[in-house]
Amino acid sequence: MTEIAVLARVHAGGGPLVEQLTCHPRLPLAAATAAGSRLVRIWDFADGRLRELAPVDLGPEPADDRSARRPGGCLPLAWHPEQPLLFVTDGSTLTRWTPGGPPVVEPSPAPYNSLAFSPDGGHLWASPSAAGWETSDVLDLATGATTTARGWDTGVAAHPSGALLATLVSDQDATFCLFARPAGGAMRQLRHTLILDVDGYGTPLFSADGRHLAIRGNAYFDSVDVFELPSLRRVLSTSLGEPGESGEWPSQNLAFGAAPGVLWIGSPTGTLIELDVTTRSAVEHDLLSGLPLSALTATATGHLLAARADGELVLLSVHPTAPAVLGDEAAAFRASTDDVPEDGELEPHLVITDGSGAWSQGDLATVTEAAATDPTWLQLRAAVNRTPAD
């Protein structure tokens, strides 16, 4: 049986409610932000203690209306994969934070809504570029050069092996979860792609052992979908409830623990739900119950970090925490597919799946019938194909 214990807890004091917690992928550092706030608070949790470091305070809202906000209203930020280095943007500026000195502020090349580091740490990926929503920027941190790449719009998740990436391209009709391999500081998209109904999803989340991918959304209800690698078979699909039911579920409330196949879910009542994605069995832990959770994430060591509605930040140990053992899922996935050509349109080259069925572009170009039980995106595609051309 999994046991949870409180390692440290501290009240963040006055200020907005923490709605986004972003842990460094290797170091005991976390950045905390809130919707509409221009303050990023940073915490060190080495040795099981929570200690606040100098924050990133972007000051008053700029007058040029280039403000950047992720879905959920929080400022875009990204941790370096190895170093204690954080980038934050408000659309007008790019701010570089390190623990050794004051933040360094530079003009932003474009009003970015999302940031991510390349796995090698040498490049910052930013979306969208000044050229429009269908493109993104690649910033070379050593030379300062900026190049344009294919677009993405909702975060970039790196497989724990560093060999596979996942990001979203969203539309009201459907959302693609695109997979890519890192290549010379850029992303090189692969043909095999997940498709999700409508939009409104959060950044994909890889499990610590690299065997599962979770996606939280969507625009109309609080869904959780989990897919296994390398097959992309959907092993879990559940709804947490319609918006407004049983309180508001936090938009950032999923965390994979160190144990294989265990997904943690933070609830509006403060309970932590331990969900085995293979057996679909769930256990509720109530040591934080009584107040809603506003954010939940996992640390690089397999601990959980939670924010509560009263402003308290809580570091939790989870036992047992055997080290995650990486398999060859990322390599197997890459071997099962091909690169998308670097030039031209993306979609004609994709082979898509929703986790249960798969479709080629030839299939989708000719489909005209879909049942009411089929995915909404497929029903819409069939309806479009039935519409006579002008």
Score class of each variant (00 low, 15 high):
43 W>R: 10
125 W>C: 02
328 D>W: 04
37 S>P: 10
202 G>N: 15
355 G>M: 06
5 A>W: 00
292 P>M: 07
33 T>K: 07
133 W>S: 14
100 G>A: 10
229 L>C: 11
86 L>H: 04
287 L>F: 04
119 P>A: 05
165 L>E: 02
134 E>Q: 13
275 L>T: 09
246 S>D: 14
346 L>A: 06
226 V>N: 09
212 H>T: 09
115 L>K: 03
140 D>R: 13
387 T>K: 10
325 V>K: 15
373 T>L: 02
166 A>F: 05
109 P>H: 05
119 P>Q: 03
106 E>Y: 00
157 A>M: 06
70 R>V: 09
223 S>N: 09
130 A>Q: 12
374 D>I: 02
352 I>K: 05
57 D>P: 10
35 A>F: 02
107 P>C: 01
168 L>C: 10
191 R>E: 15
26 R>V: 08
200 G>W: 02
237 S>H: 09
299 T>D: 08
226 V>C: 09
31 A>E: 08
13 G>E: 06
324 A>C: 11
194 L>I: 10
286 D>F: 08
66 R>W: 05
197 D>H: 13
233 R>F: 00
119 P>L: 02
20 Q>D: 15
218 N>A: 11
162 G>C: 12
16 P>S: 13
286 D>V: 15
146 T>F: 00
324 A>L: 11
390 D>W: 04
349 H>S: 15
158 A>H: 13
93 T>S: 12
296 L>P: 10
47 D>T: 04
269 T>N: 12
135 T>L: 11
301 T>A: 15
90 D>C: 04
173 D>V: 12
374 D>Y: 02
198 V>Q: 14
27 L>T: 03
77 L>Q: 14
221 F>D: 15
118 S>L: 01
325 V>C: 10
216 R>N: 12
269 T>V: 12
146 T>C: 14
387 T>A: 13
261 G>A: 14
279 T>C: 04
46 A>M: 01
191 R>H: 12
253 N>K: 11
13 G>W: 06
275 L>M: 11
235 V>K: 00
334 R>H: 06
260 P>K: 08
326 L>A: 10
248 E>A: 11
62 P>C: 07
377 W>H: 06
51 R>D: 12
186 A>I: 02
311 G>M: 12
354 D>I: 08
223 S>V: 09
31 A>G: 08
357 G>Y: 01
55 P>D: 06
156 V>H: 01
255 A>I: 10
379 Q>K: 03
41 R>W: 01
76 P>N: 09
108 S>M: 01
107 P>H: 05
112 Y>T: 11
109 P>W: 05
121 G>A: 06
135 T>V: 04
122 G>T: 03
364 L>C: 05
2 T>N: 07
223 S>R: 07
388 P>N: 01
108 S>E: 06
329 E>C: 14
105 V>Y: 04
247 G>F: 02
153 D>T: 12
272 L>Y: 03
232 L>V: 04
21 L>T: 06
177 C>S: 03
275 L>K: 13
313 L>P: 14
312 E>K: 15
122 G>D: 04
294 S>K: 03
42 I>R: 07
147 T>N: 07
140 D>M: 10
309 A>M: 04
372 A>S: 10
64 D>P: 04
267 S>P: 12
341 P>D: 06
254 L>R: 09
330 A>G: 11
257 G>M: 07
60 P>E: 14
223 S>C: 02
288 L>E: 06
153 D>P: 12
28 P>Y: 08
138 V>F: 01
69 R>A: 14
333 F>A: 13
268 P>K: 13
